[in-house]
Design a protein around this nucleic acid. Structure first.
Length: 480
DNA sequence: TTTTGAGTTGTTCGA
DNA sequence: GTCGAACAACTCAAA
């Protein structure tokens, strides 16, 4: 009679190091069976770009786990059924997982927990995704924060829940006999025809090793330029850790503690490091908002925004998605998203502001596109950030803050290098006109090989007019 | 309970 | 070209 195993149910925590659930399972002394379940009907499961990432991340994790001695089991189907079946089939004595924070997921986890416990299987859950649980960071009144700055001060004071990340594991004792598993190829998570992800692998190395390499290169260089450089899409001054974080290939604690170490050793600029840590705190803040406002992905936090005169603009939305709005910084951003599955944060704000405030398209439609096309799509970050730009979120931008796509381009992509990379049809345009091609003299356009309306669109909307219209919309909801 | 100070990321206009 | 003010009012958090 072999010893009854411990299952580790992996979700968005596709790593071995600093994985509390996996760690506890091994500590239990039972043979460990890590499992990932693909359930297409799970609420807010994953968009297409994230599935591409998932494929490669699972491949990497599968290899690492197999090497360690506990091969990854893949199962597809309805989550509750699949988990219960696997627990019975393997005669598991316990199941371990790291917690999730969205109702649809919490409900699933609870259902599985009670089903398993009814059958005498122990269940243990952990915090593997956040520095602090959402309910741990409280105001003086005991409630959740709704303003970022005091939240950040509180989190900074509190610090992470655990002092140091859990170490990696070379050996993880697995089951005596193999457990039936799907193959990744069966799941067809990557696009085939057309292969829109063809260029993704040039930008990314999914998996725990890729995540650690990215962290190291950030710490070795860009972090010291982060405070000011993070706003420059034409430079490599950001971490690009977001997709790794979104899939849990690295934990926020690992990042936090690596940065604190560098600062302590005097190897990282303190101001830049602090700014970067506060960005991690924004992720925590967003998870708190989601946890305490479960309709965050659908409904405006400030309810009066339900009455905002949004427009139904299928044509505008299409132009925005394709990067054909006639505003180079917007178009470059949308095409960077399509080509690489990622967009620089400054440009996310510019493109989102354009969709919401220039086109008056409901922010939920932008959120949906980002969710589908970003490799770092994250339900809490996405919902909170779109609401923030729309002005209906927590601690949101004031209504009159409407980004001017030309000014923003000139300020943050002064030479136009970013535009030239992602909108190559504008490549030959001098910097002076690159953010507003329609202002270029005829001969400049001609020598640059640009025919407006043919090789590159005229602006689909006049920004000055659009700005007035958006402000008038806010008057509407203020007076209701 | 009341008061007070503060609040990620902007733009435009006029002096 | 540069600079400061206006763009609103409200809600949050803490004293």
């Amino acid at each position: 009679m072999t010893e009854r195993p411990a299952l580790v149910w992996l979700r968005r925590d596709l790593r071995i190091a600093d994985n509390p659930a996996l760690h506890a399972a091994r500590e239990s002394g039972a043979p460990v069976i890590p499992v990932f379940i693909l359930d297409d009907d799970e609420p807010h499961f994953m968009g297409a770009a994230s599935r591409w990432w998932l494929h490669h991340s699972l491949a990497a994790l599968g290899e690492a786990l197999a090497r360690a001695g506990a091969p990854l089991v893949l199962r597809r189907g309805e989550t509750v059924e699949a988990m219960t079946a696997l627990a019975q089939e393997t005669r598991a004595q316990a199941v371990f997982w790291n917690r999730r924070y969205f109702n649809g997921h919490i409900a699933l986890d609870k259902a599985i927990k009670s089903r398993l416990q009814d059958k005498g299987v122990a269940v243990q859950t952990f915090n593997g995704a956040l520095l602090r649980e959402p309910w741990e960071v409280k105001t003086g009144d005991g409630g959740p924060y709704r303003v970022f700055s005091p939240f950040w001060r509180a989190l900074r004071r509190l610090g992470p829940a655990r002092r140091a990340p859990l170490a990696g594991m070379r050996k993880i004792p697995g089951p005596a006999s193999p457990v039936k598993s799907d193959t990744l190829a069966d799941w067809a998570l990557t696009p085939d025809d057309p292969d829109w992800a063809a260029e993704f692998s040039e930008s990314w190395t999914p998996g725990e090793n890729g995540a650690q390499a990215r962290l190291k290169s950030f710490l070795d260089g860009a972090i010291n330029h982060y405070r000011d450089g993070r706003n420059r899409p034409d430079r490599e001054h950001v971490s690009r850790l977001s997709p790794h974080l979104a899939h849990g290939e690295i934990s926020p604690l690992q990042i936090w503690s690596a940065i604190e170490t560098r600062v302590a050793q005097g190897e990282a600029d303190e101001n830049s490091a602090e700014t970067f840590l506060s960005e991690l705190a924004w992720r925590e803040f967003s998870y708190g908002l989601l946890y305490f406002n479960q309709d965050l992905p659908q409904a405006p936090l400030r309810r009066e925004f339900s009455a905002y005169p949004w427009r139904d603009d299928a044509k505008g939305l299409r132009a925005w998605r394709k990067g054909l709005t006639g505003y180079p910084i917007v178009d470059a951003g949308m095409r960077q998203l399509w080509r690489t599955g990622w967009m620089h944060n400054r440009v996310r704000m510019i493109t989102a502001s354009f969709l919401i405030k220039d086109l008056l398209v409901p922010w939920q439609q932008g959120e949906a596109w980002f969710s589908d096309t970003l490799v770092d799509a994250d339900i809490a970050n996405n919902a909170a950030s779109w609401q923030w730009v729309a002005g209906c979120g927590a601690d949101a931008a004031p209504y009159f803050r409407i980004f001017n796509p030309v000014t923003q381009g000139e300020k943050f992509d002064p030479n136009g290098d970013y535009v030239r990379e992602f909108a190559p049809e504008l490549k030959k345009l001098p910097a002076k006109y690159i953010h507003a091609p329609w202002k270029a003299p005829k001969d400049v356009l001609a020598t640059s090989g640009i025919v407006l309306g043919k090789t590159y669109p005229f602006p689909i909307i006049d920004h000055a007019e659009a700005r007035k219209r958006a402000l008038a919309g806010y008057d509407d909801i203020r007076n209701t």
